[in-house]
Design a protein around this nucleic acid. Structure first.
Length: 478
RNA sequence: GGCGCUAUCGUCUAGGGGUUAGGACGUGAGAUUCUCAAUCUUAAAACCCGGGUUCGAUUCCCGGUAGCGCUACCA
C-alpha cells in the first residue's frame, strides 16, 4: 500500500502581524511537509469578526513569503478543499451541526451565562474541576423543541463520551485526559456562530489534514476536538504540539520584549535565511547536535518532528544576530549592498538607487563590505557610515575620550603634522599616499600606534575606533 | 482551585543506566590589527529536589517544587 502523503495546514488568525511564535509553527509545518513530500495548506481563521481584519491576511501572507515558506492550497490560489477562509465556510459548519443534533450526538443547552458562572464558582470553591454540569444533557428532543419555539436562547453542546480521551502527540507521546476533566463543550454559540474548537476540527477533517502541528496552547483543547472527530466518525489525525517561545524573563514572548513580528525583523535588515535558521533551532536540534547553520534545503533534509523539543524555549537575539552576521557574510556583496541601500536612502545620505552611476554603486559596495563586519543587521549601517555623509564636529568633541586625545600634546603635534602634509599637496589621497603621509608624521612626531592613529582617526571620522584606515581612506576620497 | 505539559551550562541544544556530560550563542583571557569589530586559540560555565528500581542513576519509575499552558457561548 502506498504511503499516504501527509497534509498539514498553517492556520493563522488575521488579527495582527505574524510574530515569531506563529512563524515558527508555520516553518515546522512547512519543513515537515517538504521533508515528507506532502502538501501544506494555508487557512485563514477569521471567525472572530471583532478582531479579524482583512488587511492582516495580506500582511501575514507577505511575511510568510518573505521567510521563504510556500503552500499548495490557500485563499489566493484556491485548491480542491476550499474555501480556505473560515468566514466563507459558515454553511458547511451549520450543516454539520444539524447532523449532530439529529443524531443526538449534540444537544441544545438553555443554561444562562449566570447559571454557568455560578457553577464554575462553586466548583472552584469545592476544589473540583470546573466542568459543565450537564443540566441540559438529558432534555428530551420534545422539550428542547418546545423551548426553542418559545423563543429561548440556546447554545449547542457536544455530548462527550464517558471514557477518558487520549491522543498521540508526536512531540509529547501519549496524552490522556480523564473523562470528568472534560465536559460537553459548546459547539455553537447562542448567536449562531460556531466556536473555534468546533470549526477547526471540521476544517481539519474536511481538508484531510493528517498532521496537526500547532502551538501547545491547544493541548487542552485537543480532547474536545478528538471527541468531535469521533462524533462524526472521522479518523483522528496525528498531533504535534510545539512549546511556547518565551522572552528572556521566561514569560510568554510579547511586544514587551521588543521586536517579535517577522515584519520588524525584516525592517531591521535581518536576512530571511537567518531568521529561518534561528527559528528552526528554537525547539529543534539536528541529529548529532553539533551543527548550527542550515540552509533551507538542509533544514528540509534534516527536519523530523520526533526531534522537536517539548520544553519551552527562550528567544535569544544574540544568537539570531550571530546567524544573521553569518548569512550576511555568505551573500554576494552586491546583493547585500542592494538590500542596504534603502537604509541610506532613509537616512537621507543617498538618493534613489535607480539613478545611480556604476561608479557610485561600486563605491557603495566597497563601503558596505568595509562596514559589514561591525554590524548585526543592515539598519545599523548608516550610523556606521555617518562620518562620510555627516561629520558632526561638535558631537565628536563632546565625547570626553575624543577630547582628551585631541587635547594631548602628542595629539596636537600629530594633527598639525598631518594637516600640513595634506594641505601641501592638494591631490587625491590614495591608500599609498596616506600610508606615506602617516610614515612621515610618525618620523616627525615620534608618535606610534594608538598615539599616532587615534588623533588622525578622530580628525577624519569623528571617532577613535572604526574599520581599518587603509580601507576607509580611499572610500573617503571617492 | 482543577486539568495538562515541561525541567541538561546564563541561553538554544546533543546525549543517555557506567561519558573527562558534547556543540553553539553569550561571557573571560590571549593572539592579530592603529582602534573597535571580524578572525583564530583558550578558559569558566549545566544534568531542579527527594524517594524508589539497580552493583551503579543525570538518564527509568513515583512524589515534590518551579515554570508555562488551558480552565470562555476567545482564537
Amino acid at each position: 500500500m502506498a504511503e499516504i502523503k501527509p497534509r498539514v495546514r498553517f492556520a493563522p488568525s488575521p488579527t495582527g502581524m505574524l510574530h515569531v511564535g506563529n512563524a515558527r509553527t508555520a516553518l515546522y509545518n512547512w519543513l515537515f511537509a517538504q521533508h515528507n513530500g506532502g502538501s501544506a495548506i494555508l487557512r485563514i481563521e477569521d471567525t472572530d469578526v471583532e478582531r479579524s481584519e482583512a488587511r492582516y491576511e495580506a500582511l501575514l501572507i507577505e511575511d510568510l513569503h518573505w521567510l521563504g515558506l510556500t503552500w499548495e492550497e490557500g485563499p489566493q490560489m484556491g485548491g480542491s478543499h476550499g474555501p480556505y477562509r473560515q468566514s466563507e465556510r459558515l454553511g458547511v459548519y451549520a450543516a454539520h451541526t444539524d447532523k449532530l443534533l439529529i443524531e443526538g450526538k449534540a444537544y441544545r443547552c438553555f443554561c444562562t451565562p449566570e447559571q454557568l458562572e455560578a457553577e464554575r464558582a462553586a466548583a472552584a470553591a469545592a476544589h473540583l474541576p470546573q466542568v459543565y454540569s450537564g443540566r441540559c444533557r438529558s432534555l428530551s428532543m420534545e422539550d428542547s423543541r418546545l423551548r426553542v419555539e418559545a423563543g429561548e436562547m440556546y447554545a449547542v453542546r457536544l455530548r462527550i463520551p464517558e471514557h477518558p480521551i487520549r491522543f498521540h502527540d508526536l512531540v509529547r507521546g501519549d496524552v490522556e485526559f480523564a473523562a470528568d476533566a472534560v465536559s460537553d463543550p459548546v459547539l455553537v454559540r447562542s448567536s449562531g456562530i460556531p466556536v473555534y474548537n468546533y470549526v477547526v476540527a471540521i476544517d481539519d477533517a474536511l481538508m484531510e489534514i493528517t498532521h496537526v502541528i500547532r502551538g501547545d496552547d491547544h493541548v487542552s483543547n485537543t480532547p474536545k476536538q478528538v471527541a468531535i472527530y469521533e462524533a462524526f466518525g472521522w479518523k483522528v489525525p496525528e498531533f504535534a504540539h510545539l512549546s511556547t517561545i518565551l522572552g528572556s524573563d521566561r514569560e510568554r514572548l510579547s511586544k514587551r520584549h521588543g521586536a517579535t513580528s517577522i515584519a520588524s525583523f525584516r525592517e531591521m535588515g535581518y536576512l530571511p535565511e537567518a531568521l529561518m535558521n534561528y527559528l528552526a533551532l528554537l525547539g529543534w536540534g539536528a541529529e548529532g547536535g553539533t551543527r548550527e547553520t542550515f540552509t533551507p534545503a538542509e533544514l528540509v533534509a534534516e527536519f523530523k518532528l520526533e526531534r522537536v523539543t517539548a520544553s519551552p524555549a527562550v528567544f535569544d537575539t544574540d544568537k539570531l544576530n550571530w546567524l544573521n552576521r553569518h548569512y550576511l557574510k555568505l551573500r554576494p556583496i552586491a546583493e547585500v549592498a542592494a538590500l542596504a541601500w534603502p537604509y541610506f536612502e532613509q537616512a537621507g545620505y543617498l538618493g534613489l538607487r535607480e539613478k545611480v552611476t556604476v561608479e557610485i554603486a561600486d563605491w557603495f559596495g566597497r563601503l558596505v563590505a568595509v562596514l559589514l563586519p561591525g554590524i548585526d543587521h543592515l539598519d545599523q549601517l548608516p550610523a556606521k557610515a555617518a562620518f562620510l555623509f555627516a561629520l558632526d564636529s561638535a558631537k565628536t568633541n563632546a565625547d570626553a575620550e575624543n577630547a582628551a586625545i585631541l587635547a594631548s600634546d602628542m595629539g596636537k603635534r600629530v594633527i598639525g603634522a598631518f594637516t600640513a602634509r595634506a594641505m601641501a599637496e592638494p591631490g587625491p589621497i590614495t591608500a599609498e599616499r596616506f600610508k606615506a603621509m602617516m610614515n612621515e608624521v610618525k618620523a616627525e612626531t615620534g608618535a606610534k600606534g594608538k598615539e599616532l592613529f587615534h588623533p588622525v582617526r578622530i580628525l577624519l571620522t569623528g571617532a577613535h575606533s572604526g574599520p581599518e584606515f587603509d580601507k576607509i581612506v580611499p572610500l573617503m576620497e571617492d
